[in-house]
Each structure stands twice: as structure tokens, then as C-alpha cells.
Design a protein around this nucleic acid. Structure first.
Length: 849
RNA sequence: GCCGGGAUGGCGGAACUGGCAGACGCAGCGGACUCAAAAUCCGCCGAGGUUCACCCCUCGUGGGGGUUCGACUCCCCCUCCCGGCACCA
């Protein structure tokens, strides 16, 4: 396009030629413009003809201020959102606040400020920080979970759960954190400690609690993981472990002798029914309901069982189960093995847990490590019933032999069967004779959602003396959380001390009723918030089905791996529950999940106690939002741990300065672009080649690997190439159209990473349209193609020289050039060339002998 | 114990399906500009040797073996670090 050189260029004002990059000036200017135009980052309605793209970052808890982990998370999501806008998608990119929770109550106690005020103030501040960082959120869709407009739907969902039998109340042993003064879900107990208080052992308390039947979906939650190919394998594995499905069988052993209240049989759970002929004892958990019965009136036995219970409780708290020595006590009683009618002794042992299976096992010392250890200690029989299948011969295996590649012996009519076959046949046999059945057990437990705290969603239930448990009628929602409540960490739920709240009328009989005073676990809030974003203002329904159908599933969800179990399993559950209500039609909330690495400093996690916290505000003040964000992407790939270095931010700031100064010096406004190599000098072609190679690299990173560190590096390389060519540019040896085109594309490439600078330079270049909706630059393979390739020359795999060959040269020519190159000739001299390997575009390896 | 991830210059990290190890950035060193400094621009920057005629040689991606014309990359064994699960029957 030679004629474009004749296009007149637009002169630039003195101010635009300002050569110092001042991020504060630029960012404040664009910040003001963006705030004035909320539609800029808004999603189009769901009847848009554009293809939709829903990119979501996990919503923060409004703790007071953003930390670098947030900045990194949102920088990734924002780059993706901006890129997808430029690719022409209708992008939904919302943000909100996970605003209920304990820290607000603690702040209330400490600073004498109501939790609501504290929370809303934090939200205002953090929202301001996000805006200053230039994150492109659709604030019209903001969701704040502590406001009645949101939490009323938590209550509505709770009523639905109750209606469907998925919410129920039961008294049970629950995890209690004395520090939080509340109950914890199993998922919130980490190694026997509270997830918020790493030093506080969790206690067990007997309490009446509301549970959500997550186990109803255990199988679907597990099987669904196979389809979630866009999720990290790590997260899928963690969820699989958490759900912990194991197939096995329940088998009833009749108790020999007199039976008492608790019954006349013990049901054991086993995954190895094939070894049942080798069962030489029954082992009960110390807390097994039959244990007190079986030890009868013997006070010393009772005391020993009590000791075992205490020991287990201690071990649970200290998390040292694995180091505990196995021991137990013989009850003096026997049970009958239903397969061979043998009498086996019943023991109570410290290594059996109440919470798994049935709390009772058949002990097969020959084929289980733990059983073997126990049997050795107490001289219990060890009977081999399984042989390694391969030996065939009756060669004694190493005891305990626990492998499944095996064959049965000493097992009556089941002898000679393989282990797989035996499991099937023996399970069927037990079912036929009515003393057992094949079952599946899970590690996953129902989700206890009651919290004895104030700052949460009130559970919409009433207790009436006449009618019992009565749900609050839907038309009486929301059950408002009262304000001005006296919060202390003692004496149960704070709401219980608010008579106006507690005292209510029974909707069934009109009599006096008492309100439920517990609130919901805050993980309820975050289990479905992303649906609310699709229509956050809707006031007669939690969501609009058609709108959700358009936007869901989420195309890309981004957050910390610490939510791999808690939040992400609850969210998946909630999605399945909503689907079964007919509200939505997707089975999973998100197609792709990305878990970014932690931000650390000087080798450890940023924390106040270590004094290594880097404040985003400080970084923005020193280097600007663009440099801060870009550094968080440039330092390493997003999935890895990021070691924060202020000097690195400074380096990115320097790079942005180079870009800024280059455009300020060379900005021209000329339409069109040179799309052909013809007629351009070698220097021009070289810069264009680098440009298009850069476009390819950055575009590919967005599509696949998300290695934004290499995207940014590629743009840096390109800018270095521009500096190398600047003498030619200044001398006017670049056609204006080409120069203008190069600069426009450079700015477009930077737009997802440093939006402020990109906006400023876009304007400097005389462009008027919205950068965010401007098409992403196309990579032109013709312009990107190398004209000449430098081949590496190897002799026997060792690098010896290089040779330049025209890019289009056929392999034979490459080969010939290589063999006639001086070094190669010298090396080959007097030797025999065995083989010549030509790797097109890369190297030639000459193998000589 | 099981599962997942990782180890590359002084530092953060590149090298995508086996093909020139160290892109890009930081720090450092040298030069230009300056009265000087900062900023900026240019150059050098794995180790050792030979030499600086900037050419060449040897070694080098946690350790040891292997496959291959060729290995950071694939296979086997081992060490260490991070994360998850775990007396799970």
C-alpha cells in the first residue's frame, strides 16, 4: 500500500510530546472517564446476538483492604475479560462481596462498631481500590451477600431444601471451635484444627443442628468430575478424595449369647468380603453403640472402653492418629461369622472410627496391615485365605498379603476364585441369605450449616409448642437480621438475646412460636452468588431462568486453590439442587476453572506477623496500577507461586515508560496498513515480522496456556526491536501508514495488561473508538514469515556452527549448504558421513564416524 | 503410606509436540550524555580454559543410570521442597 505514505499526518500538540511517563496523571484521567461511563464495562442483555463469555473471579471477603493475592486474581480475570471483549464476545465480568462472616463480629467487639457498618465501610474502600486498579467490572450487577435483597434468597432456598427433604435437623456430635464460639462443617476442620484458627483444636459437642443433605448428590458430584476437563486435575483429585467413595459390603455377624437393648447383631463394613473366611475377630469403635452392652456389667471393661474414647478424642485434637499404637480390649463376647458359622471374639479397638462405615469391622490379620499389627500384639489367629494368583502353587505369601491380584483358599465353596469374582459371588451369597448387602460408603458427610453467630443469614424456621418445627412462609421473607445486637462470643447465638426477634407467631396455629436463632454458614452465600449476577436486581425471584440459560455455565472461573474443596464442592451441590428444582438447566457451575498460585514475599506467605505484606495502594502510588497489574502477570506464569519483588514492578514501570516515550516521539495518524512485504525496506519488513510474530504469541497464550508472563515478554521484545529500528523511523524511512499501524497494534496488544496506558496512547494515536471493543489484531502469517533461517549445524549432536539459508529453500539445499560450510567440511574431512538429519527450520546434524 | 505439583545463572523465570539451554525482566559491570548526579540510551553478564583478533574448546538444567543422531524435555532408580488425603476397614 505505497499510496498510504502520501496520507497527511496529524501534528501532535506540545503536551502530547511530554516525554515523561507519569502513571498518576494518565490513570487518574482515565479513571475519571471510566467512572463517568458505567456502560463501558457492562454486559449486553441476554438476547444479544454476540456469543457470550462469562469470566468470573472469586468474590472477596471484605476484610478491609485488597491484598496482592486479590490483585493477581483480578489481573488475570481482567486481562481475559478485556481480551474477550476485543474478540467480539458479549462478556459478563461481575464482582461482589462475600460479606457475612465472623471477622465483622470480632471487629464489632474490638472496636465497638456494628458489623454492618464495618462491612459496608470495607466494601466501599475495596471497591474504590478495584476501580483505581482499573478492573473492568459491571458494577450494576454487584452482589453484596449481607444485604436482605440477597440473603432473602438464601432463606428462600433453605425453604426449598426443607421442602425437598434436603434440609433436616438432628442432634449430633458436631465440630465446635471454642475460638469462633460456633459449629464448623467437616470441611472447615483442618487437621483437627479450626480453618480460621490453626492453633485451636476443634472440640466435639452434642448439638441440635440444621444439615443439608449433600450426600444425596455424592455419586453425581463424584462422577461429574470426570466431565470437568477444564478443571485442574489437582482440584478434581482433591474432590475425589474428599467424597471418598468406597464400594464394599455390609455383613451382619450374630452375637453369640444374650442380647440386650442395642440388638443381637453387629454389622460390619468391608471392602474385602473376599477375605471373610480369614476373619478372626470383630473390632468395634470405642463409641460404637453396642460397646456398652457387650462389656456388660464389668466396671473394669467399661473403664477401659472409656479410656479408648478419651484417647481417640485426644488424638483427633492433636492430629496424631498415625503415631498412636494400636490397642484394644476383649469384651469377652463372641459373634458368629455367617459364612462359616465360626465363633469369633469381639474386641473394642482404638483404631476403629465411628464416623466411617458402620464403626465396626471384621478383622482379617492375614490380609490387612492394621489388623495384622493388632493380632500380633494380642495373639489373635492369623489365617491365610488369599494367595498371590501368579504363583498358582501353594506358596505362602508374605503376611499380611494385601494385594488384590489373588486367589481364594480356605474359603469353602469359594476356593480357587479370583478376588474380583469372589467379591461379586460372596456379596450375592450374603444378600441371598439375608445377612448382608453390597453398599457404597462415602467420606463426604452432610453439610452442617447452623452457626451460633450473629452476622449471617437467619435460618427461616420457627418452633411452635403445638406444631413443632414450622417453616417461615415464603411471603414473610426475608426474616430480617436485627441491628443493634449485643455481640459477645459467649452464651450461644447472639440472636437468642433479642426478644423482638425470637418471639414470633406460629403461621399454622397462630400461637406463640420461637424463631431459630442460629444463622447460616457463609458458604451458603457463596454457593450460588454467581447466578445472581445474571440479574442482580430481580426482586421476586432469585434468578431468571432464561437469563441464566444464556450465561451459564461460567466459561472461566478463577480463584485460589484453597477453595478447591469447601466452596467448589458446595457450589457444585447447589447447582445440582437448583437444577432439580427446575430453576436452571446446567449440571455444573463452571466449564473451566483456573487456580492461580499464591503471592509470597521473601520465601513465605505475606502476613502481618512476618511483616512482609506489600500493599497494592503503595505499589499503585509508586509505579501505577498498570505496572502493578502487569508485574503480577509478568513475574511468573499464573498457576505458579509468585515471589513478589518491588524491583520487578519498577522494571515493568520502566518498560511502560519505554512504550510511552516511543509513541510520544513517533505517533502518527494515518489510515490503512501495509499488509504486503513488497516495496518495504528490510528494516521495515523486520519490524513487521517481529510485530506479527508477537501478535501470534500473545494470541496463542490467551487461547491455550495462559502464560501471560511470556506474552508480556514477547511485547517487551517487540518494543526492544522498535528501539533498535528507531534511527530509521526518525529518519523517515518508515511509511506513515506502516508506522501508524505498528503503533496501533502495539497498543492493542497492551490493552488487556495495562489498560490505562493503552487508553491514553490510543487517544494519542488519534483513535476515537472504544479500545475495549476494537477488534483484537489479526496475525498475518505472510508478514510473520522469516525470509532467511539461521540453521544450527551440529556434528554428532554437538553445536559447531551456523548457516543462513533462505526460508523457502528445499531440504536438499539446506543439506548442501550445511555440508559445504567450512567447519562442517573440516570436521567431516577424512571421516565417513553416516547420516545427515535435517530438522526443517531448525538445524542440521551431521553424524560422522 | 497414597495422590498431585516442583527443583534451570547472583535473583524471578524462558525453552509449548525431543532439535542452538538461559528469551524477557531484576541485580551487577562497562560506556555515552552531564560540571556532577538521577533519568535515559548503548554494550557485557552460567562456570572453567584458551585468548580477549569477542574465535574456539570443555563442563553445565537436584543426583545416578538408560533410550536417541540429538534429552531441561521420554523411560527406570534416588534425594529434597510445596500442596492435598490418610489407622477409610
Amino acid at each position: 500500500m505505497a499510496e498510504s505514505t502520501k496520507t497527511p499526518t496529524t501534528p501532535l500538540s506540545e503536551r502530547q510530546r511530554e516525554d515523561r511517563y507519569d502513571p498518576q496523571r494518565i490513570e487518574e484521567k482515565w479513571y475519571a472517564r471510566w467512572q463517568a461511563d458505567p456502560a463501558l464495562f457492562a454486559a449486553e442483555p441476554h438476547d444479544s446476538s454476540r456469543k457470550k463469555y462469562y469470566v468470573l473471579e472469586m468474590l472477596p471477603y471484605p476484610s478491609g483492604a485488597l491484598h496482592m493475592g486479590h490483585v493477581r486474581n483480578y489481573a488475570i480475570g481482567d486481562a481475559l475479560a478485556r481480551h474477550m471483549w476485543m474478540r467480539g464476545y458479549n462478556v459478563l465480568h461481575p464482582m461482589g462481596w462475600d460479606a457475612f462472616g465472623l471477622p465483622a463480629e470480632n471487629a464489632a467487639i474490638k472496636n465497638n462498631v456494628p458489623p454492618k457498618d464495618w462491612t459496608l465501610r470495607n466494601i466501599a474502600h475495596m471497591k474504590q481500590q478495584m476501580k483505581r486498579l482499573g478492573f473492568a467490572y459491571d458494577w450494576a450487577r454487584e452482589v453484596t451477600t449481607c444485604l436482605p435483597e440477597y440473603y432473602r434468597w438464601n432463606q428462600w432456598f433453605f425453604l426449598k431444601l426443607y421442602e425437598k427433604g434436603l434440609a433436616y435437623r438432628k442432634s449430633s456430635k458436631v465440630n465446635w471451635c471454642p475460638e469462633c464460639a460456633t459449629v464448623l462443617a467437616n470441611e472447615q476442620v483442618v487437621g483437627g484444627m479450626c480453618w480460621r484458627h490453626e492453633e485451636t483444636p476443634v472440640e466435639q459437642r452434642e448439638l441440635e443442628q440444621w444439615f443439608v443433605r449433600t450426600t444425596k448428590y455424592a455419586d453425581e458430584l463424584l462422577n461429574g468430575l470426570d466431565q470437568l476437563e477444564g478443571w485442574p486435575e489437582k482440584v478434581r483429585t482433591m474432590q475425589r478424595n474428599w467424597i471418598g467413595r468406597s464400594e464394599g459390603a455390609m455383613v451382619d455377624f450374630k452375637i453369640d449369647g444374650p442380647s440386650r437393648r442395642a440388638g443381637d447383631k453387629i454389622t460390619v463394613f468391608t471392602t474385602r468380603i473376599d477375605t471373610i473366611f480369614g476373619a478372626t475377630s470383630i473390632q468395634l469403635a470405642p463409641e460404637h453403640p453396642l460397646a456398652p452392652d457387650l462389656v456388660g456389667n464389668d466396671p473394669s471393661l467399661h473403664a477401659k472402653v472409656e479410656d479408648l474414647i478419651r484417647e481417640q478424642a485426644r488424638a483427633r485434637a492433636a492430629d496424631d492418629f498415625e503415631t498412636m499404637e494400636k490397642h484394644g480390649v476383649f469384651t469377652g463376647r463372641y459373634a458368629i461369622n455367617p459364612f462359616n458359622q465360626e465363633k469369633v471374639p469381639i474386641w473394642v479397638a482404638n483404631y476403629i472410627l465411628t464416623g466411617y462405615g458402620t464403626g465396626a469391622i471384621m478383622s482379617v490379620p492375614a490380609h490387612d496391615e492394621r489388623d495384622y499389627e493388632f493380632a500380633q500384639k494380642y495373639g489373635i489367629d492369623v489365617r491365610v485365605v488369599i494367595l498371590p494368583r501368579r504363583t498358582g502353587e501353594r506358596e505362602e505369601p508374605m503376611i499380611p498379603y494385601t494385594h488384590k491380584d489373588s486367589m481364594l483358599i480356605n474359603s469353602g465353596e469359594f476356593n480357587e476364585l479370583s478376588n474380583e469374582e469372589a467379591v461379586v459371588r460372596m456379596t450375592a451369597y450374603a444378600e441371598r441369605h439375608g445377612f448382608g448387602k453390597g453398599t457404597v460408603t462415602y467420606r463426604l458427610k452432610d453439610w452442617g450449616i447452623s452457626r451460633q453467630r450473629y452476622w449471617g443469614t437467619p435460618i427461616p424456621m420457627l418452633y411452635c409448642e403445638k406444631c413443632g418445627i414450622v417453616p417461615v412462609p415464603e411471603d414473610q421473607l426475608p426474616v430480617l437480621l436485627p441491628e443493634n445486637v449485643d455481640i459477645t462470643l459467649q452464651g450461644g447465638s447472639p440472636l437468642g438475646r433479642v426478644p423482638e426477634f425470637v418471639n414470633a407467631t406460629c403461621p399454622q396455629c397462630g400461637g406463640a412460636a420461637r424463631r431459630e436463632t442460629d444463622t447460616m454458614d457463609t458458604f451458603v452465600d457463596s454457593s450460588w452468588y454467581f447466578y445472581r449476577y445474571t440479574n442482580a436486581q430481580l426482586n421476586d425471584r432469585p434468578l431468571d431462568t432464561a437469563t441464566v440459560d444464556y450465561w451459564f455455565p461460567i466459561d472461566q472461573y478463577i480463584g485460589g486453590v484453597e477453595h478447591a474443596i469447601l466452596h467448589l464442592i458446595y457450589s457444585r451441590f447447589w447447582t445440582k439442587f437448583m437444577r432439580d428444582l427446575g430453576l436452571i438447566h446446567n449440571d455444573e457451575p463452571a466449564t473451566r476453572l483456573f487456580t492461580q498460585g499464591m503471592v509470597i514475599k521473601d520465601g513465605s506467605k505475606m502476613s502481618k506477623s512476618k511483616g512482609n505484606v506489600v500493599s497494592p495502594d503503595d505499589m499503585v502510588a509508586r509505579f501505577g496500577a498498570d505496572a502493578t497489574r502487569m508485574y503480577s502477570l509478568f513475574a511468573t506464569s499464573p498457576d505458579r507461586e509468585l515471589d513478589w519483588q518491588d524491583a520487578g514492578v519498577e522494571g515493568v514501570h520502566r518498560f511502560l515508560s519505554r512504550v510511552y516515550r516511543f509513541v510520544m516521539r513517533n505517533a502518527v495518524n494515518a489510515p490503512g496498513a501495509s499488509t504486503s512485504r513488497d516495496g518495504n525496506s528490510a528494516a521495515v519488513r523486520q519490524v513487521q515480522r517481529k510485530l506479527h510474530q508477537t501478535i501470534r504469541r500473545v494470541s496463542e497464550d490467551f487461547q491455550g496456556r495462559w502464560h501471560f508472563n511470556t506474552s508480556v515478554a514477547a511485547v517487551m521484545e517487540f518494543v526492544n526491536a522498535l528501539y533498535a529500528a528507531e534511527e530509521d523511523i526518525t529518519a523517515g524511512r518508515f511509511p506513515a501508514a506502516v508506522l501508524a499501524d505498528i503503533q496501533r497494534k502495539l497498543v492493542l496488544l497492551l490493552a488487556p495488561f495495562s489498560p490505562y496506558l493503552a487508553a491514553e496512547l490510543w487517544e494519542t494515536l488519534g483513535e476515537k473508538d472504544n479500545l475495549l471493543r476494537h477488534p483484537w489484531p489479526e496475525y498475518d502469517p505472510e508478514l510473520a514469515r522469516e525470509e532467511e533461517i539461521i540453521y544450527a549445524l551440529q556434528i554428532n549432536g554437538k553445536l559447531r556452527s551456523h548457516v543462513a539459508v533462505p526460508a523457502e529453500a528445499p531440504e536438499a539445499l539446506v543439506r548442501e549448504r550445511a555440508l559445504t560450510e567450512e567447519k562442517v567440511k573440516a570436521a567431516v574431512e577424512g571421516k565417513q558421513v553416516v547420516k545427515v538429519i535435517v530438522v526443517p527450520g531448525k538445524l542440521v546434524n551431521v553424524v560422522v564416524r
